[in-house]
Amino acid sequence: MHPFIYVAPRTLDEAVAVLEQHGERARPFAGGTDVLVQLRGGRFDLDAIVDMKGVPEATTLELNGSLRIGAAVPCYQVYENSAVAAAFPGLIDAASLIGGIQIQSRASLGGNLCNASPSADGICPLIVHSTVAVVRGPQGERRVPVEEFCTGPGATVLERGELLVALEVPAPARGFGAAYQRFIPRNEMDIAVAGVGSALTLDTDGTTIASGRIALAAVGPTPLFAAKASAFLAGKPATPETFAEAGEIASTEATPIGDMRGTAEHRVELVKVLTRRTLAVALGRAQANR
């Protein structure tokens, strides 16, 4: 492994300065569960690792109606926080699913987003929660909707000197529910063959969908927002028939490849099934949240 220095800044400005100085030869570092593996595997070399865990903005989990998740907050802090777990079960589906306990002690949802894997379990739930990524760089702060953050496998909108500070998840509206599920051939500790996140908000009548959002993992170059299937849900009755049709539409928005984990055809079918199932779970949660 190419030697790199370890920098532990205390402020965002310090972190940005180091990243700007080294450009692509430096990376922000949270749990290290992706970047250290990639460095050892020779995917790329770095001259500097910038540990974000000493920067308060990146390590704070704040629930105040809305939820702000510092980019370096490990998954266990999200799911062990009972107030967060009660208000955002759709995020907990993913945070408690990524890796085993050892990985969850370290890995963060922010890191999951920045790693930009097409099969990332953490990204779809963030998308369906309309989460905004707070980015800081040499030019100051900018805010990017999570569905626009990943630009390809392992590629993001982050430019030289920029880093992810936090994820801002809006307060769930009354009647909102969300869920994430993936298919893997094992019971746990595996990479998704396909994954689907769904969210819906019930109208005041409790039976009509006011709006919905669906996002798909491992069926395209990035986790993707299924715009047509999401738009279809608005105004429809919250029934199994609606959910099945949304699954059919979502499957047309998937552009999967076949690989060692599954064929493209299998993945298209999985999108239909997982869309139906996650919408059903989201409905249950929406009804509990009225």
């Binding site: 370890y6 532990a8 570092f29 749990g31 290290g32 569960t33 250290l36 593996v37 050892r40 595997g41 690792i49 540990d51 266990y76 890796g99 085993g100 306990i101 050892q102 990985i103 002690s105 370290r106 500790m189």
Partner: peptide, 24 residues
């Protein structure tokens, strides 16, 4: 690479894979 857990240690009371932690 963080798959097998053979290197599990406890860090501030949480189990981690020590292969994915920097000594620093």
């Amino acid at each position: 690479d963080g798959n097998c857990g053979a290197c599990t240690v406890s860090l501030d009371g949480r189990i981690v894979d020590s292969c994915l932690v920097l000594a620093a």
